[in-house]
Design a protein around this nucleic acid. Structure first.
Lengths: 344, 344
DNA sequence: CCCTTGCATTTGAACGCTCAAATTCGTACT
DNA sequence: AGTACGAATTTGAGCGTTCAAATGCAAGGG
């Protein structure tokens, strides 16, 4: 039953059948589709009419084979997920949408437990010419993937800086977390806070340092000296449950700047659970402006990642690389904006 | 620079070059890969050796053209997102992972604002032979997409029942929400609850009715008659903020069964905000066992959708349809399980 | 000893497109 | 009038695979 339709149909329209119908050569039909300016307007109209009459659509496999390009890009994620709140979802959507406008599509590849395994997966994918390029949606300190891909001539753009090697020659886009945290600091100082604490994972030589430094710098720029004791290093948001209350009692901060929305969310929960105190006693801020930040109460002031812009940049570089007209790697830091959510 | 590697390489290994190296014909090499049992073990070993020596990998475009199948399946989502918490993420991951095991890959298609637009997108995709089939990750009452696809011979499996037309001939997999709610009811009755309220969107002739009915039936089966006044119909979780307090005061339920985790999450927030009362005074349950249910406090007892199993079923049917050996449509209801999270 | 059978392997033709080069044709230039 | 040019169009090859049919070859039956 299923699939029968494909067999019943007299025959699939091809470049040749359309050409015959329009009284031109197959290549003229191809030109009408791929380089309309090369064909005379009257001819073009006639061909277009024939195309519509038979409902012709170019076959992707034929195209891919002839142009040696699938117009497919791998969105590569590891098999395990670390983040409690996923931005991946919104990001993948933005990427797919923008890619469509460029004539490219996104393939979801879930493979590999670590860099080595993922690199093996890239090797396979590109050797089979299954994709034209790769998007790496998140990087980590010491990430070997972008380097491998670039070294092997595979078009790639990473979302995330090469922290360990700032001069790495591959393309990347990242959100300027430091700037984001400065915005948070500015906002808090303007609201009268002077005892501002930072909550997040300990320094890792990468993003963690960057975010915290942004806060400290931002506070300083607005006349507030950050007390180094007002830092609560916790690897995982879950740990806040045990450690946050004592931390609050010891330092008495009036604001809690969290490394991301997961930490912020957990912090809010802990605050809400303190007997005899109001959640609102301490202002909590997050980062990512995830769905969590939007639904939790009190609403979380958070730093929003401009995902559409990131997607736009990624494709512009990726397409340039794929089409062989990439002058130099794209290496761009994007300034996020602050989304202020006043406690109701 | 980029892309240079592809040009420098002497020449890409093909079926022919491997065949020449192994001293056999191209077809024998093809057989070693696609039908190993057709070739003598010694020959097979020799060919395999040649394949490894040159690092040959079959070209996907060539394959797709010859077998008229891309081994690509569209994961089709609309441009707008309705859900506050997305399971899409986990679901897409599960689907991609299982698909890989079947030799298929998932393409992320973000297109269309309504059924008609999405159908146009399907039409295009299949006419270009860009994909072999489609997965529809969520259906709605009156959904026209699965019907259109099936009528046009496009392999499709929907995640979600055809509520308006139970006998619809297309393939689908769904989670038995009614059963899930029965589990919730059973759990609550066992915990001693008798005044159990339901919170969720008003009846829609589909899933909404099903979930609520499951609760009512479940309660009855365990000796509790559900008071029809203990239903709070709200279209959106946000509305709970205004309406839940009065509802609680009026009916004094001891348990709040929510249509899904978004509602449950919102309910917990409202409960936590009530002056002079404990969150724990009322037990809240959710549905989906989303990330939200896992991180909110108190932990939400929720109904877990067995996404891996769903993915497994979807691919089994999809692949059967694609390969033309589908006997009859897959129409399967899966029983979810209850994840109990005791309030600490 | 020849013919059949069946297995292993080879041959050649698609599949549907794009690219590069060749051809046609009308126009302008000498 | 003859040639040169450029634009529009056509021709033919090639992309790398699979499928169907043909061939080669050894073993078994008459």
């Amino acid at each position: 039953m299923v699939g029968a339709a494909a067999r019943d149909v007299p025959r699939r329209a091809t470049l040749h059948s359309v050409a015959a119908a329009a009284g031109v050569s197959h290549q003229t039909v191809s030109n009408v589709l791929n380089a309309p300016d090369r064909v005379r307007p009257e001819t073009r109209a006639r061909v277009l009419q024939a195309i519509n009459a038979v409902g012709y659509r170019p076959d992707e496999a034929g195209r891919a084979l002839a142009r040696r390009s699938s117009r497919l890009v791998s969105f590569h994620v590891g098999v395990e997920r670390h983040d409690r709140v996923s931005m991946l979802d919104d990001f993948a959507r933005a990427l797919a949408r923008v890619g469509d406008a460029h004539g490219y599509r996104l393939v979801l590849d879930v493979a590999g437990r670590d860099d080595a395994e993922q690199i093996a997966s890239f090797e396979d994918l590109t050797a089979r010419r299954a994709v034209d390029g790769v998007v790496i949606p998140a990087t980590h300190v010491g990430d070997r993937r972008p380097g491998w891909l670039t070294a092997h001539g595979v078009p790639v753009v990473a979302f995330g800086r090469p922290w360990h090697e700032p001069a790495a020659p591959h393309s990347w886009v990242d959100v300027d977390g430091r700037h984001g945290m400065r915005l948070v600091a500015e906002h808090l100082v303007a609201a009268g806070h002077t005892r501002v604490a930072y909550v997040g994972p300990p320094p890792d030589g990468g993003m963690e340092d960057d975010r915290m430094a942004g806060l400290v710098d931002g506070l300083r720029d607005h006349g507030v000296v950050h007390d180094p004791r007002l830092v609560l290093p916790v690897a995982d948001p879950d740990a806040l449950r045990d450690r946050l209350p004592a931390f609050l009692d010891a330092g008495r901060p009036t604001a809690l700047v969290c490394r991301d929305d997961s930490f912020a969310f957990e912090a809010v929960q802990v605050l809400a659970g303190r007997p005899g105190r109001q959640v609102e006693d301490v202002t909590v801020t997050g980062f990512d402006d995830s769905r969590l930040a939007r639904v939790v109460r009190p609403g979380l002031t958070s730093v929003a990642q401009p995902l559409d812009q990131v997607a736009e940049l990624i494709w512009s570089s990726l397409v340039a690389q794929i089409e062989g007209r990439a002058q130099q790697p794209l290496q761009r830091l994007i300034r996020p904006r602050l989304v202020v959510r006043p406690t109701p």
